[in-house]
Simulated scan of single mutants.
Amino acid sequence: MQFNNAPEKMMACRRLALEQNERLFDEANAYSRRAFDLLEHPDFDCEMFEEYLHIRHKAESLFRDAIEHLSALNEHFPPPSSRSATGVSNSTTVDKEVA
């Protein structure tokens, strides 16, 4: 009977991985907002610009990690619609889900 739960387990794993991916994107967005907030600081100087660059680099790195994570997630835990024989290409399904 456990083998019948395989699709449910796959979906549970996918949901968990999507939640983690959302956290990665949220963290990247937070860094990005923090960096752009620095640009609006009235006493913006060279030091703050260096900090801005550092934070933007961190945000970009996190965005890349989140995108790579999402790609791996879709490869290992494909969306349910891409597992069925619908005739829709996998890349089209992934694009729709990400958007």
Rank of each mutant, 00 (worst) to 15 (best):
T93D: 04
N21A: 11
L62I: 04
Y52G: 06
A59C: 10
E22W: 01
S89N: 12
D65V: 07
L16R: 08
T92N: 10
T93Y: 01
I55V: 15
P7M: 05
M11H: 14
N5M: 08
R64T: 10
H76D: 12
M11Q: 12
A66E: 00
L18M: 12
S32M: 07
H69E: 02
T86L: 12
R34C: 03
A28E: 01
M1K: 04
A6E: 07
A17F: 06
R33D: 09
P80I: 06
S82H: 08
R64E: 08
D65S: 07
T86F: 04
M1F: 04
Y31I: 03
A59D: 09
R14T: 07
S89F: 03
A28G: 15
S91Q: 06
S91D: 09
H57E: 12
N21G: 15
E40L: 11
N90V: 14
K58L: 09
L62H: 03
A72E: 00
L16Q: 15
C46D: 12
P7T: 04
E47D: 14
H76F: 05
L70H: 00
E50Q: 13
L70D: 01
N5H: 03
A85K: 10
E50H: 11
A85E: 11
T93E: 08
M10H: 09
K96R: 07
L53D: 08
F44Q: 05
L62R: 05
H41R: 11
E22I: 11
F77P: 04
P78Q: 00
S89T: 14
P78Y: 00
E40S: 15
R34G: 10
D26I: 09
S84R: 10
R34S: 15
N74W: 00
D43M: 07
I67P: 01
E68D: 15
E60S: 15
N29M: 08
S32T: 02
D65T: 08
A72C: 00
L38K: 00
E27C: 03
L73C: 13
A59Q: 05
H57Y: 07
T92Q: 12
L16K: 14
S91H: 04
D37S: 04
H57P: 02
F49S: 06
E60I: 11
R23C: 10
E68T: 12
